[in-house]
Design a protein around this nucleic acid. Structure first.
Length: 744
DNA sequence: ACGACTGTCTCAAGA
DNA sequence: AGACAGTCGT
């Protein structure tokens, strides 16, 4: 055997060599799982003579896929282009483009992103006369998404709907799905759902892919949801050479359906699965790893696993509580400048992680002020920017005018004097005649209620139709230029002259470069091909660790990455863990936040800074949050407190004093949310001493779960952990202080 | 009567 | 930053 496998430790080697049958690799943070996966692929090809096209590797991002391919290339030097290395979504698109016509869809479907999805759901709700105040669209989208994850069709969902809300969701879901089909579009969930549907309805298609993918590997397995699990399960059910890699402690996507049971029950689901644990961490110092362990051990229901490292002890964790978010940003900026100027570090060695994208604003302002180069990953990504989406909508409309959402997006952008009333009338006409919105534009002269607007509408339709002919003789870049100039889009932005407009123009320039790049590199560049490539790009895919800039992103985005120096900003109860997770009163919600914290901490190799602010402005309201419970879960000795700061207890004292001051100024008002403080009216967080007006055996009422019976009450710190059996939701463990249970 | 413009409200995490 | 409601202007 080639000596490159000797560089692996015993466990890693075992995982590489175990190629036949189901295998679960429990890979702790920084335990070298990517090395294992790439070596395993190399081993399959080199030593087991598996043809590369028989291998499927699923990664979490396109970036990870690209890297994995490169690393395999480096190991064996050939064949990597024939391996399928891609995300779940890209794999599904590839399969659907070939076969979706077999289940009654058009192979040239477009893919709707969250934005398009939201617009369409809103339209459906409007058509059904559903009050968006009573039923929030985001929550309806969430319900539809989770229904799809459970593979519930609109029909099945309607049947099992058990209350009024679910009946409403059922109606929206049904219409939404019809409209998607009419628009020749699939949303992100559909990509998975339709592929599984295809596999179930066309056994021959499934069989061909089962034959093709004799060896399957799935990375970040802890974050797969049910439909992804089905997809993999179906493909692997014949040869059963399925290797999944994951870490239950890093499962952070439960909110979008990731099912931690997929990893906890793997051995049960795939009989006789081999389990290998990778517990040696090669990434972090002993102190960082110890801090991570101290936090995560507060979670119940984990697979037993203890990470260790041979690395140095390293510096202590630095916890700092600053007066407000601005001084927090200033502290971080100054630390980085000192590091770069006095110690010769590079900007790219630093990362700032946070819970919510909104936190990046203050950091960004400070970094601009101090001239620190930075890049923000996530938030509004390149392809979500208005100007980019506008261009894409033009291209989509030229390419496939059945996509109503795209057509409506640009029909009046830039202003053409086609307003809401005209658009409504065209919509009605299209609906009544069962034609697409764009088709209705061409027949506008037949719509009696439109008189003045007709000319303008015709002008727009002719413009698009003209371009559709012209594009035959044009490159994509020329086509885009034509759109931008003839619509006056560029001129309008140039005339505006604001910083924002300039920024938009820059983005448009970048878009043109991307088009150029695509045309130069693609074997057979087509408009359709470009649109497809763009549809599945995540912001993190564009992150390049070679650029020498400080990078800022959410802890979710940081999964799988590592940096020498890491700042985690906003270590405050109410922000992290989030207010939502605290107020639900559910232990499992806090545990997911804790896993996220674990992910954040374990990104750091050399030095970790945990940052907090006593006062923080969030959504126009100043909040006074206590220190994050996650900081308190780390031993004082590990936090370099005494060097810079008073003991933890004194910090709490100082914090209490600050609150006391605040309270004196406060008017006693009823507030909707604890911690959230309106304008200058400050309030205290909920007091810690409480007595319960219910006991074991009592019937209580919960905001979300309704009526249930108290099974047990156990003291937990300053709080009580109450176990309640809800007939509708099952047995839940709730924190009394937050669950706000009322005796019924 | 229609479209453009202005001010107010909301905002967790992502492919 | 975007969506919506209400008002202004043609």
């Amino acid at each position: 055997m080639d000596k490159k496998y000797d560089s692996l430790n015993d466990k890693q080697k075992e995982a590489v060599l175990y190629t036949e049958g189901p295998l679960l690799i429990l890979a702790g943070a920084g335990s070298g799982k990517t090395r294992v996966l790439t070596h395993r692929i190399a081993y399959l090809i080199e030593e087991k003579n598996v043809p590369p096209f028989n291998i499927l590797a699923i990664t979490f991002t396109n970036k990870a896929a690209k890297e994995m391919r490169e690393r395999v290339d480096n190991l064996i030097g050939y064949g990597s282009q024939d391996i399928w290395v891609s995300t779940f979504h890209s794999s599904c698109v590839r399969i659907l483009r070939r076969h979706i016509d077999k289940i009654g869809y058009d192979r040239y479907f477009t893919i709707y992103d969250a934005d398009d999805q939201k617009k369409l759901v809103r339209e459906c709700m409007k058509q059904l006369n559903i009050d968006p105040k009573q039923f929030k669209e985001s929550s309806i989208i969430g319900s539809i998404s989770s229904a799809k994850d459970k593979l519930l069709t609109p029909k099945k969902y309607e049947k099992q709907a058990s209350d009024y809300r679910e009946e409403v969701v059922a109606k929206v879901y049904k219409l939404y799905q019809e409209r998607l089909k009419k628009n020749n579009a699939l949303d992100f969930d559909d990509l998975l759902v339709k592929t599984v549907e295809l596999f179930k309805l066309c056994p021959d298609v499934l069989a061909s892919y089962q034959e093709k993918f004799k060896y399957i590997m799935v990375d970040e397995y802890q974050d797969t949801n049910h439909v992804q699990y089905m997809f993999v399960g179906l493909l692997a059910s014949k040869y059963r050479n399925l290797c999944v890699v994951g870490d239950d402690d890093q499962s952070i996507y439960r909110f979008r359906g990731a099912d931690i049971r997929n990893i906890l029950d793997f051995e049960k689901d795939f009989g006789h699965a081999k389990v290998i644990k990778l517990e040696q961490n090669y990434r972090s110092t002993k102190n960082i790893l110890e801090a991570a362990n101290q936090v995560i051990r507060n979670n119940m229901g984990r697979k037993s696993k203890t990470l260790f490292t041979d690395n140095d002890e390293g510096e202590r964790i630095d916890y700092r509580c600053m007066p407000d978010e601005k001084s927090e940003a200033a502290f971080i900026a100054n630390k980085i400048i000192t590091g770069v100027e006095d110690h010769g570090y590079n900007y790219r060695q630093y990362a700032i992680l946070y819970r919510t994208n909104a936190q990046s604003r203050v950091l960004e302002e400070r970094f601009i002020m101090q001239n620190i180069p930075y890049k923000i990953v996530g938030g509004i990504s390149f392809y979500q920017r208005k100007e980019i989406k506008d261009i894409l909508a033009y291209l989509k409309t030229i390419n496939n005018s059945t996509d109503d959402i795209a057509v409506k997006r640009i029909i009046n952008v830039p202003r053409r004097g086609i307003g809401a009333t005209t658009i409504n009338r065209i919509e009605d006409y299209a609906y009544n005649n069962d034609i697409s919105f764009f088709q209705a534009l061409s027949e506008v002269s037949q719509i009696p209620s439109i008189s003045r607007g007709a000319k303008k509408v015709e002008g727009f339709a002719n413009f698009i139709l003209g371009l559709r002919i012209e594009m035959q003789t044009m490159s994509l870049v020329e086509l885009t230029d034509e759109v931008l100039n003839r619509t006056g889009y560029i001129k309008e932005l140039e005339a505006e002259g604001t910083d924002e407009a300039k920024n938009r123009l820059e983005n448009i320039g970048e878009m043109i470069s991307k088009l150029t790049e695509y045309e130069n590199n693609a074997e057979e560049p087509t408009l359709n091909g470009f649109l497809e490539e763009v549809a599945l790009v995540a912001d993190i895919d564009n992150y390049n660790e070679d650029t020498n800039v400080v990078v800022m992103m959410t802890m979710h985005s940081a999964k799988g990455l590592e940096f020498p120096y890491v700042f985690i900003s906003g270590m405050e109860d109410g922000l992290f863990p989030s207010y939502m997770s605290i107020s639900s009163g559910l232990q499992e919600d806090i545990e997911e936040e804790r896993r996220l914290c674990y992910v954040g901490i374990t990104r750091a190799k050399e030095k970790l800074y945990l940052m907090g602010a006593s006062a923080r402005m969030i959504r126009g309201m100043t909040q006074y949050n206590p220190i994050s419970r996650f900081v308190r879960e780390i031993n004082d000795e590990l936090l370099g407190l005494e060097e810079y700061m008073p003991k933890m207890s004194e910090i709490n004292d100082a914090h209490a004093k600050a609150l006391e001051q605040v309270r004196k100024r406060a008017r006693p008002t009823l507030r909707e949310k604890p911690y959230a403080v309106k304008k200058n009216v400050h309030t205290m967080p909920t007091p810690t001493h409480l007595k319960l007006d219910y006991g074991v055996g009592d019937i209580v009422k919960h905001m979300k779960f309704g009526i249930g019976e108290v099974m047990n009450i156990a003291p937990g710190g300053a709080d009580f952990e109450v176990t309640v059996n809800f007939p509708s939701a099952g047995i839940k463990k709730l924190m009394a202080r937050l669950a706000n249970l009322k005796k019924a």
